[in-house]
Nucleic acid binder design. Structure first.
Lengths: 304, 304
DNA sequence: ACATCCATGTAGGCAGTCTAAACAATTCAT
DNA sequence: ATGAATTGTTTAGACTGCCTACATGGATGT
C-alpha cells in the first residue's frame, strides 16, 4: 500500500478534480490519473466515478481518503518529531487571513520569527470565499465566526482558537451616547446604521439587537471595508459595529467605541488547518506565536 | 518522508541488526544499509551508531522508530478499511503458540475459517524463548502469564486477553483427596510434587501455596511437557498443578482434578501482536475466532 | 593470525513514475 | 448546431531510484 497514492486520493477529495490535484502536487494530470488507476486496481473496487467531464469519489473512495488523513497526520508527527530533535523550526509556512486579523496579529508575529522560518501571508475577502477551502492551499487559515457557532465544523479540520474580540458600537465624537460607559440595545433605537455586506458575523448581531430592542434598525449603507465604514461613522453619517482591537487605526481620537451590554457581541478568531499540516513543527511554532500575539493584543486593550 | 524507510528503521529497532532486517524484508543487507543512510541524511542527525560489529539506534533513532509504529498502524487501518468494503478477510496469518493453548484453541478455529483465509501455526517452548520477541516474526503470538502481572507490558505491543484458565491440582484416582469437592493449601502439606521448570507461571503458584500452608513443598521432578507430568501423576509418583481445560487429553478418567481454594490459581492466555498487524482484517478475524473459541471451551467446562 | 560475522561501499540492472502528446468525452458559447 | 474549451485518459519513451551482486573495512573470538 503506497502512501503517495493515498495522498493523491485525499487531495482529490479536497480539491475535486484531477487537474487541480496535478497543479497542487506539481505533476501532470496524466500522472495523477495513472496513480489513481493503480490504487483502484490494488483496492479491487472502484474509488472514483465519472460525472460529467469531472470525477467524483465513490463511498469507498471517500472512506479511504478519510483514513488517508490519519496516515498523513502520523507521518507529519514523525517528521515533526525529528525537527524537535534538532530544535529546528525551519521552512516556509503559508497563511491566509481576512484583512483585520492580519493587520492585528501578523506584524507582531513576523517580527519575532526565528531564523530560517519564513511566513508567507496573503489576504482574502471572507465573504467572497469559502475560507475552510483555503486549507487545501495554505498551511494556516485565519477565519472568524460568532462565538459558539462553528461554521467550519465537520470537515475534519483542526481548529485552534486564537482570541475572541468584542464588537463595540462605533460612534462619532459628540454623539449623544458618547459619554456613556456602555450602551444597551434599547439605546440604539432610531439610530442610522452603517452595515456590512451579507455573510459577515456582524450581521447576526445586528439582528440580535433588533430582537432585543424590539424595533427594526435602519440600515443606510452596506460596506465590506472597515476603514470605509469608520470614515462614514466619523463623518456623522451613522453608527456601526466595529471590532474593538482593530478599529481606529487610521484616525485615532475621532471615533468612540462603546461596549454593548445585554447582548453577546463578539467574534471568535481561529486558525484553521489540515490536521496533517498542523503537526509540522514550523506550523506549530507559528500557531504558538499567533496565540501569544493574540494574548498580547487582548491584554493591551484591557484597562489595567 | 518515505514510509518504507521508516518501516526499515522500525524493523531495525525490533530485530537489532541490519542483516536480520534484510532477512525479514527479503532484501540484501546492502539495500537496508543504503536506505538507512538516506534516512539519516534526510533527518540531518545520526539515527544509528556502530557498536562493536553491530549497529544500535541512537535516542533520536528510537524515538523515530516509535513514531514509525503510528504510521504503520494508520496505514494498516487504511488497508483494513477497504478489506472491510469488500468483506474480504483474505490472506495468510501466521501464529505461534505454546503447546497447550494450541491444542485447546487452534483446531476449533481452523475448522471454521472462511474461504481464502489461511492460518499458519507453529509452536514454541515458552521457557526457552522470549515470546514477545516472536511478534516480529509472527502476526499473532499466544502467550500466558499469571493474572494481573503482565510480563510483556511496556513494549508497545497490542495485548488481547483470550481466556483465564484455572490451574487445578491433579491427583491420581484413589488418592485420599480425590473425593473432596475442592482442596485448600493446608491439605497439600506433605504431598510429593511434580513441578515444572523455572519460568513457568506454575512456579509462582506453588510458592504461594507454600506461603499459605506455612510449609515447604517437596519437589521430586521437574518437567516441561504436560503429558509427561500427567503420566507421572497417574502413576502415583506425586501430584501436580495442571491447567483445567488442557489436561487429561491422553488418558481420560485416570486423572482427577480438584479446584484450589484459598489462593488465586489461574493463568491468563492472551494474544500478543504488533499494533500494526493487529489492524489487518484477516488478523482481526482470527482474533475474533480465537475469542469465540476460548469462550466455547470455557463454557463447556462450566458445569451446567 | 586467521576465520567469521557484520556493516558498508560501488557498479549495473530493473521497475516504477513521470512527461509529452494525442485522444475521447462532456459542457458551453456563439 | 457546430466549434472551442475543459477535463480525464491513453500510449510511448525518458528518467529516477531501489535493489542485487560483489568487494571492502572493522571487530570479535579462537
Amino acid at each position: 500500500m503506497d502512501v503517495q497514492r493515498l495522498e493523491l486520493l485525499r487531495e482529490l477529495a479536497d480539491r475535486g478534480s484531477v487537474t487541480a490535484v496535478a497543479l497542487a502536487t506539481h505533476r501532470t494530470p496524466s500522472a495523477v490519473s495513472q496513480q489513481l488507476k493503480v490504487l483502484e486496481r490494488e483496492a479491487g473496487l472502484p474509488l472514483t466515478q465519472r460525472q460529467g467531464r469531472g470525477l467524483v469519489l465513490t463511498d469507498a473512495g471517500r472512506a479511504l481518503a478519510r483514513s488517508a488523513t490519519d496516515v498523513a497526520v502520523s507521518l507529519a508527527k514523525a517528521t515533526a518529531l525529528w525537527d524537535d530533535f534538532r530544535n529546528n523550526a525551519t521552512g516556509e509556512v503559508s497563511l491566509v487571513t481576512f484583512p483585520t486579523a492580519g493587520q492585528m496579529l501578523l506584524p507582531g508575529v513576523i517580527k519575532n520569527l526565528g531564523p530560517g522560518l519564513v511566513l508567507n501571508c496573503a489576504d482574502e475577502d471572507p465573504e467572497l470565499s469559502d475560507f475552510p477551502a483555503f486549507t487545501a492551499e495554505y498551511d494556516i487559515v485565519l477565519a472568524h465566526s460568532m462565538s459558539g457557532q462553528l461554521s467550519w465544523a465537520g470537515r475534519g479540520l483542526t481548529v485552534v482558537p486564537l482570541m475572541t474580540e468584542p464588537l463595540d458600537v462605533g460612534l462619532p465624537v459628540g454623539h449623544p451616547l458618547a459619554d456613556r460607559a456602555w450602551v444597551r440595545p434599547s439605546d440604539l433605537i432610531g439610530e442610522t446604521w452603517i452595515g456590512v455586506t451579507d455573510g459577515y458575523p456582524f450581521e447576526r448581531i445586528l439582528h440580535a439587537i433588533e430582537q432585543e430592542a424590539g424595533a427594526r434598525l435602519s440600515m443606510s449603507q452596506r460596506f465590506a471595508d472597515l476603514a470605509l465604514i469608520e470614515s462614514f461613522v466619523i463623518a456623522g453619517l451613522g453608527i456601526a459595529l466595529v471590532p474593538r482591537y482593530t478599529s481606529g487605526g487610521g484616525q485615532p481620537g475621532r471615533l468612540v467605541l462603546k461596549p454593548l451590554r445585554g447582548i453577546e457581541s463578539e467574534r471568535q478568531i481561529v486558525a484553521l488547518m489540515r490536521p496533517d499540516r498542523a503537526e509540522r513543527l514550523a506550523v506549530r511554532t507559528i500557531i504558538a506565536a499567533l496565540q501569544s500575539e493574540a494574548a498580547t493584543v487582548q491584554q493591551s486593550h484591557t484597562p489595567k
